[in-house]
C-alpha cells in the first residue's frame, strides 16, 4: 500500500537479521518435511535466504515475513526437486473450486478409525503417515496443522485460490485418515498375536 522504497545496504542487513533470520528454524522444519533429507533441507534453506536477500526490495517491512519466506522456499523446492524427479506432475488430481466434488464425502472413513485409536498412535506412526502422503497433500497439512497458517496465507504461499486450499486440505486429511486407519489395523493385528 505504502510506497515501496529500495533499502539502503545497511537497512537490508538489518531487515534481514530482524525479520528473516528469526524464522530459520521454521524454515528448516518446512524444508526437512518437504525433502525428508537433512542435507537437502539445509541447501534449500540456504538458497531461500539468499533469494530473500536478493529480492528484499519486494518485501514490505512489517508484513508477514514468515509467509513470504515460506513462499520462496516452496518455489525453490518445486524448481529444484520436482524437476529432478522423473514424474514432474505425478499428482494430476483434479482440484475443484467447490469445496467437495469428490466422492470422498460419502466415504465412511470415520467408521473404523476411532479417537482412542488415534490417541494411542505413537509419534513415529503419525510422522510416517504424514510423510507417506504425496508432497502436495503433505504440504497443506504442514502449513495448516503444524505451522498454523490461515487459509488465506496458504493461498499466497502456494499461489492457489482459497477454494483450492480448502479442497486440497480436505483431501489430504482424508488420505491421512486412511493411512492412520491402516496403522491402526496393523496394530490390532499385532495385538491379537500376543
Amino acid at each position: 500500500m505504502g510506497e515501496r522504497m529500495s533499502y539502503e545496504s545497511k537497512d537490508k542487513q538489518r531487515v534481514f537479521n530482524e525479520e528473516f533470520m528469526p524464522h530459520i528454524d521454521a524454515m528448516y522444519n518446512f524444508a526437512y518435511r518437504l525433502t525428508l533429507d537433512e542435507d537437502d533441507a539445509k541447501d534449500l534453506v540456504q538458497e531461500t535466504f539468499m533469494k530473500a536477500y536478493r529480492f528484499i526490495n519486494s518485501f514490505e517491512t512489517g508484513t508477514n515475513a514468515k509467509a513470504w519466506l515460506f513462499r520462496i522456499l516452496k518455489n525453490s523446492f518445486i524448481n529444484n526437486y520436482r524437476k529432478k524427479s522423473k514424474q514432474p506432475n505425478k499428482v494430476d488430481y483434479q482440484e475443484v473450486e467447490s469445496f467437495y466434488n469428490s466422492d470422498s464425502v460419502n466415504e465412511n472413513i470415520t467408521t473404523d478409525l476411532r479417537v482412542e485409536t488415534v490417541q494411542h498412535l505413537i509419534g513415529d506412526e503419525i510422522t510416517n503417515a504424514l510423510n507417506s502422503l504425496d508432497v502436495d497433500f503433505r504440504t497443506v497439512i504442514i502449513l495448516c496443522d503444524l505451522e498454523g497458517f490461515t487459509y488465506e496465507e496458504m493461498a499466497k504461499i502456494l499461489d492457489i485460490p482459497i477454494g483450492t486450499v480448502r479442497s486440497r486440505l480436505h483431501r489430504a486429511r482424508n488420505l491421512l485418515k486412511e493411512k492412520l486407519k491402516q496403522y491402526a489395523s496393523s496394530l490390532g493385528y499385532k495385538d491379537k498375536r500376543k
Binding site: D25, A26, Y28, N29, Q46, D145, L146
Partner: peptide
C-alpha cells in the same frame, strides 16, 4: 480434532542444524 492435535503433539519442530544460521549470515 484428535488427528490435528496428534500431529501437533507428535511432530515437534526441531532447531536448525548448528552452523546453518552462521553460514547464511
Amino acid at each position: 480434532k484428535s488427528i490435528k492435535d496428534s500431529l501437533k503433539n507428535h511432530i515437534k519442530p526441531s532447531t536448525s542444524p548448528t552452523g546453518l544460521a552462521n553460514s547464511i549470515q
